[in-house]
């Protein structure tokens, strides 16, 4: 299994990178954990590959005004093990630790995973629950896209061919917020059959904030706002959680594949939503 021929560039700065991408014909290589296997199977055959792997600016972790800025090139391992990330945004760190395996976590990147938008990837659930923002840069401009507009469909995001993701902007978690990511693993690939990320904060005996992101169930990850609405204001009892979790698949067209039917996915999504919320509470 061997990729087709391509031209290769390895810019040293973001500016160089977006200059190379300006014609919209090149494909961005981050860690390569999604792209290179596809190229080997020849399901992907870019003529020009722009490797972002050596742009130091893209591997920074900074805290700024209540937000955590994670460089797009941070590996899953870095996200999972950074003390700052674990403290300020534990959900993304926990989710990162569930991705793939040790070697994939050493090489795969946050931005690469987000851009690939695999319907069964782990990160998107957390990014939805965190209401992440994505900074997209092109030659002459940049924009920040909310996660709700970022994931468009299976393998499809708002990233244009001439853009790169430079960072993901996540909220610094308020004290008292509990988080959890729970997934039913597809045994072969380790991807999520269904994965649910939850953030919950209680205040005065009631749920003051609930955010739930779901991956694996639909063509792209989404925020289960129905669950959130039912949970917020409730006492967060087991019955409250169960009732809220039952709304996770409302209005969702569930995926069906070799590994799980859409009915089963819906059911598991409800179970895992309840579990993630319970664990977060």
């Amino acid at each position: 299994m061997i990729p087709q021929e391509f031209n290769y560039s390895r810019p040293g700065t973001v500016q160089e990178a977006v200059d190379l991408l300006a014609d919209g014909e090149a494909k961005v290589l981050a860690g390569g954990m999604s792209l290179i296997p596809l190229m080997k199977l020849r399901l992907s055959a870019p003529e020009h590959v722009v490797d972002l792997g050596r742009i130091p600016d893209l591997s920074r972790i900074t805290e700024n005004g209540g937000s955590l800025h994670l460089g797009a090139l941070l590996t899953h391992h870095q996200v999972a093990t950074s003390a700052l990330v674990q403290e300020k945004c534990p959900l993304i760190a926990e989710t990162a630790s569930h991705i793939g395996d040790a070697q994939v976590r050493n090489m795969g990147t946050l931005g690469g995973s987000a851009a690939h938008a695999d319907p069964a990837a782990d990160y998107p659930a957390a990014l939805c629950a965190l209401e992440a923002k994505v900074r997209l840069v092109r030659r002459d401009s940049e924009r920040v896209v909310g996660i709700g507009d970022f994931f468009v469909d299976a393998l499809t995001t708002a990233v244009e061919p001439e853009e790169i993701i430079t960072e993901l902007i996540l909220p610094v978690e308020e004290a008292g917020t509990g988080v959890s990511y729970q997934k039913l693993r597809q045994p072969a690939s380790g991807f999520a059959i269904v994965g649910v990320a939850a953030r919950v904060r209680k205040d005065g005996g009631r749920v003051a904030m609930a955010r739930v992101g779901v991956t694996g169930l639909a063509a792209s990850a989404y925020r289960a706002t129905g669950v959130e609405a039912l949970l917020e204001g409730s006492e967060g009892s087991q019955a409250d959680v169960a009732a809220a979790a039952a709304a996770v698949d409302e209005g969702i067209e569930a995926i069906s594949d070799l590994h799980a039917s859409s009915d089963y996915r819906r059911h598991v999504a409800r179970v895992y939503t309840a579990r993630a919320i319970q664990a977060a509470l």
């Binding site: 290769y8 390895r10 290589l29 390569g32 954990m33 290179i36 296997p37 080997k40 490797d51 792997g53 391992h77 040790a102 070697q103 994939v104 050493n106 090489m107």
Partner: peptide, 19 residues
Amino acid sequence: CTVALNGKTVKSCALLAVQ
């Protein structure tokens, strides 16, 4: 195919030599 790259294990069949 696992090897260590700068001290971290990676799968060398999912990496380009240029990387």
